[in-house]
């Protein structure tokens, strides 16, 4: 369930809200790399999502 925790942390970052408790959890990680990689992947997903929405709207 570590992956899920990382994703949750990155999503929390996207809306800019995180609780102290989860932050403690995040910062116990040995390396920030999984967070950075997940962050970049989610940004790409975010971009793709927007592109899909936009394409759907334009096709209409």
């Amino acid at each position: 369930m570590r992956l899920w925790q990382v994703i949750k942390a990155v999503l929390a970052a996207f809306i800019g809200v995180q609780s102290e408790k989860n932050r403690q959890l995040d910062f116990q990680a040995q390396t920030p790399l999984p967070y950075i990689i997940t962050g970049i992947i989610l940004v790409v997903l975010f971009v793709l999502c927007l592109v899909l929405i936009v394409n759907y709207l334009v096709a209409f």
């Binding site: 990155v10 996207f14 800019g16 995180q18 609780s19 102290e20 940004v43």
Partner: peptide
């Protein structure tokens, strides 16, 4: 207020600023 949120928001702004 919201130190963790500030840190998280800053890092996500950095990534999203490229889009």
């Amino acid at each position: 207020f919201g130190y963790p949120s500030m840190v998280y928001a800053t890092s996500s702004i950095a990534l999203l600023s490229f889009t």
